[in-house]
């Protein structure tokens, strides 16, 4: 399911003394089946953009197209809900949305809201809790008795339980320790591959964007300034700096190595493994006098 934004603008509190334009002239396309990363400095409009992807906000200008549904400022509530079923959002600190007495009920909340029969919702919930690596017996516990990391997994299960075609992730690893971070990111990657889910990752981490995404959108000052494959976006440090962004560590290290070794800038290495291959190759080939 493609998501397309055409000339989208959004102004908060329009017509009051406190009005503020958060987005303007946004034209982006998120291809079906892609893993798209949205990067940008704090205040660049990333999170406002994200809320347009499942109609939590309606554009005050332009149109948002999610599959066959067109959303403009006139679109009514019913249609918005059908979009929300197809596009799931995992917000930052998603554990803050838990409220039910048991983990199982909480995970079933979304599916039930969208009219999935109870038995099926329960089956999905059980399956997802297992998939997310929560220990046996978690389903009957109160979500508030779990550890922070487990609560986060339950909340993520609650979004996945709606079986969305598109999964939007807003800094899903904020506040986790390194191993928790890696597990969650690998899990989303696996889901993306296995379930053929379109994944949209909104992140501050250039490393995650470079490692996982196949399509990158750069936001700056409320509008999209660059869109393309990560190899293009992350190759040019000078250009990213203009938007107050940095290249991933791997690329920074690669450039430093190339500069000292007198090599031309090669295609950016997006993962540590790629960088290691590249460096090992360059060192072995290097040989003696240059």
């Amino acid at each position: 399911m493609d998501i397309t934004l055409q000339r989208v603008g959004y102004t908060y509190a329009a017509g009051t003394p406190f009005q503020k334009q958060a987005l303007h002239d946004v034209d982006v396309r998120i291809p079906d089946g892609s893993y798209t990363a949205v990067i940008g400095h704090t205040g660049s409009g990333k999170s406002t953009l994200l809320q347009h992807l499942n109609a939590l906000l309606k554009p005050t200008e332009g149109t948002v197209r999610v599959g066959d549904t067109v959303i403009t400022k006139e679109t009514k509530g019913k249609q918005l809900r059908s979009v929300r079923r197809k596009v799931g959002i995992v917000f930052q600190f998603p554990e803050h949305q838990l409220f039910e007495e048991t983990v199982l009920k909480d995970v079933m909340f979304g599916p039930l809201n969208f009219g999935i029969p109870e038995a099926e919702a329960a089956a999905r919930a059980e399956e997802l809790l297992g998939l997310l690596g929560l220990p046996e017996g978690t389903a009957e516990k109160s979500p508030f008795d779990l550890s922070g990391g487990q609560m986060r997994r339950v909340a993520i299960a609650g979004v996945l339980a709606m079986d969305p075609d598109v999964l939007v992730l807003d800094e899903p690893t904020a506040g986790l320790d390194p191993s928790g971070r890696r597990e969650i990111m690998d899990l989303f990657h696996r889901l993306h591959e296995e379930r053929d889910m379109t994944t949209i990752l909104v992140t501050h981490s250039m490393e995650d964007a470079a490692r996982y995404a196949d399509h990158v959108i750069v936001m700056h000052d409320g509008t999209d300034v660059l869109e393309g494959p990560p190899e293009d976006v992350f190759g040019d440090a000078g250009r990213l700096a203009r938007w107050r962004l940095e290249v991933p560590r791997t690329v920074a290290f690669q450039r430093e190595f190339e500069r000292g070794a007198g090599l031309p800038e090669g295609p950016p290495c997006l993962t540590e493994e790629q960088l290691a291959d590249y460096l090992a190759g360059a060192v072995k080939k290097g040989g003696g006098a240059r």
């Binding site: 939590l56 509530g77 929300r84 799931g88 959002i89 917000f91 803050h96 979304g110 809201n113 979004v159």
Partner: peptide, 19 residues
């Protein structure tokens, strides 16, 4: 702020407060 965030998270999970 918090209310707004939670409201949006639940709306995204299909919660319907307005009808």
């Amino acid at each position: 702020d918090e209310t707004d965030k939670i409201l949006k998270a639940q709306l995204a999970r299909g919660s319907d407060i307005s009808s």
